[in-house]
Design a protein around this nucleic acid. Structure first.
Lengths: 217, 217
DNA sequence: ACCTGAACACCGTTCAAGT
DNA sequence: ACCTGAACACCGTTCAAGT
């Protein structure tokens, strides 16, 4: 699992630089930022990027895997502190906010959850997946809520994940952090909204959704 | 609104050919089919495509405007034949199925509804929009259902549109009609599912969603 | 008035040559 | 073992030349 032999010092440094540049680029230009551009920002050759991250998806996974695991771990904390139904709602809010903040994560989950066609699945063993921790987390919370009689028993964990994913995608685009002074359209980020507004909308939508998923007494 | 002067015969013919080729290409290759390819299929020069459809979005709008209007008109029929709540559900099912069948329509609605970043809004007067008929249709059905006491009054028509759009996006990719024998991955359309399965899932999800949106008596 | 297709810019991806 | 960067293929877009 871990590297058999530690990476050469320059390789490790390049890897870090690439990841940092990628975070910047995706934040500023959204998904589909130019890979060539990322390599240049990082000050490495294009080939080096491909050596470390053979696909765009691999790069996204590396960027977000820490954050994904952190979100997955929150499930355990919430499950301890809150009743099962509330824990599920709270966790889904956090997941949705994560997807709104990290544009790339949406594409990842998209292909991981069977949602869309962006960020094509890697060729090969399609099964192992960076979103596995999320799947496990939602399975646990959904199971708890069902056993507690707070959630319909005719929906599965994947249904819940898919629905929240869809809702988050439908919530709109929050205006990104460091938007570079693009020479493009005037009027600034047309159509984008204040991050808080989008976040609030997400919570409303997750609430409505949960209303439908709640077990009827 | 209508053409001031009728198009020259060859122009009209090319336009038809381009639309037919586009329908084929989008069905076979999904969104983001090559525009150059579409021009070649249609047997016209690349410049001709741009003359008729300056942006990818313009092409998609022209392709789907008939279908969009047909769906919008269904709202009136359903409103006459069914109680307000049932009419809304039935119409949302049809809209969702439309979005699943027409991959391009999802991207259109995405940008139209403030959902995603695909299919960038056309520069210029962003207000007029091919999805206006859908907006009007949903506004009518939502209003009816609210007046009939069958729908919460704290949600707006756009909320409903966004939610159903999100749910449809989350439903997964139906396997397309005429999938050309691509030399790509083995195993056929990996991850795509039988159209009926996706359609059934959509109906389930719309049902769950409506459960949350229903007015509590 | 409209069409053609060569030309240009840009991006992803590969690979021979370097250290 | 890893990096570089030129080279290639592909796609969107424009525009001078044609009819």
């Amino acid at each position: 699992m871990a590297q058999v032999r530690p990476m050469r010092a320059d390789a490790r440094r390049n890897r870090e630089r690439l990841l940092a540049a990628a975070v910047e680029a995706f934040a500023a230009q959204g998904e589909g930022a130019s890979l060539d551009d990322i390599a240049k920002r990082a000050g490495v050759g294009a080939g080096t990027l491909y050596r470390h991250f053979p696909t765009r998806r691999a790069l996204l996974e590396a960027m977000y895997s820490d954050r994904i695991e952190a979100i997955a771990e929150r499930a355990g904390e919430l499950a301890e502190r809150l009743p099962a139904g509330a824990a599920l709602v709270a966790w889904l809010d956090e997941l949705g906010l994560g997807m709104i903040q990290m544009r790339g994560l949406r594409a990842l989950l998209s292909s991981s959850v069977g949602g869309g066609e962006e960020a094509g699945r890697g060729a090969g063993g399609a099964s192992s997946d960076c979103c596995d921790p999320l799947r496990q987390a939602v399975a646990r919370l959904v199971g708890d809520a069902q056993r507690a009689g707070e959630l319909r028993r005719d929906v599965g964990a994947m249904d819940v994940l898919r629905l929240v994913h869809g809702v988050a995608m439908a919530c709109g685009e929050a205006v990104g952090g460091t938007s570079v002074g693009d020479a493009g359209d005037a009027e600034g980020a047309e159509g984008a909204e204040r991050a808080e507004d989008v976040g609030e909308r997400l919570r409303r939508y997750v609430g409505l959704l949960m209303e439908g998923l709640r077990a009827r007494g």
